[in-house]
Structure formats: structure tokens, C-alpha cells
Amino acid sequence: MKLTELIEPLACEVIHEGSNFTNTKIENVTASDLMSDVLVVDKHNLLIVTSLASDQAIRTGDIVGAHAVIVVNGKALPATMLKLAQELDMSLLISPLTKFMACVRIGRLMNME
């Protein structure tokens, strides 16, 4: 699935487009607010769904090689988060949905059961 296919169903606001944004492929998703749990994930073409609106969400994403971070619950992001997303070339989006609803919709889009 392409990352851009999530924008509308999740009502995302795109905060930062990483390079190759329109062609970013998502094959795996991890949803967590605990960055230690995210660090366990060893998957390719990874998307992180989190309600942690802090720089560490981006840094952790970078460490595990994720392509994008979606912050749920429509949380306001600290300005430093955008800066870091630019610096680390990480796509960053905000969705007003709850983490659960965001995951439900992503699951449907990816035909997961």
C-alpha cells in the first residue's frame, strides 16, 4: 500500500513529506506509544502509528528505519518535531482519529484480518 492512500481515509494532515513521499510503500505497521516496544519491531517499509507527540517518536522511527510516523488524536506537535522530521527525512502526518480507529482503517485498507 502507498502511504498516500492513507491520507484521506485517516483524514491526515501532512506535516512533512519525506523524499519520495508519493511513492512511499507501507507493508508493515506498528502502533504504540512506548518507544521501547517500537524498537523491537524489525520490519521493512514500516509505518509507526502513535499518540506520542514528541521528537522521540521521530528518532525512534529513524532508528528502526521506518518511512513515516502518523500522530493520532489530532495532537499538536512541538515545532522541534517537524524540524527533526525534515532533518531525518521522515514523513510526518497527523490524524484526528483515535489510535484504535486509525488502526481499524489501516487494517481494512491493507486487507488485514
Binding site: D33, L34, M35, S36, D37, L39, V40, T50, L52, S54, Q56, A57, T60
Partner: peptide, 9 residues
């Protein structure tokens, strides 16, 4: 609340 301290480090 900052996403750490899950006891997994």
C-alpha cells in the same frame, strides 16, 4: 508519558 520507561530497555 514521553514514551519511555516500559522496562524493555
Amino acid at each position: 508519558s514521553l514514551g519511555f520507561g516500559a522496562g524493555m530497555g
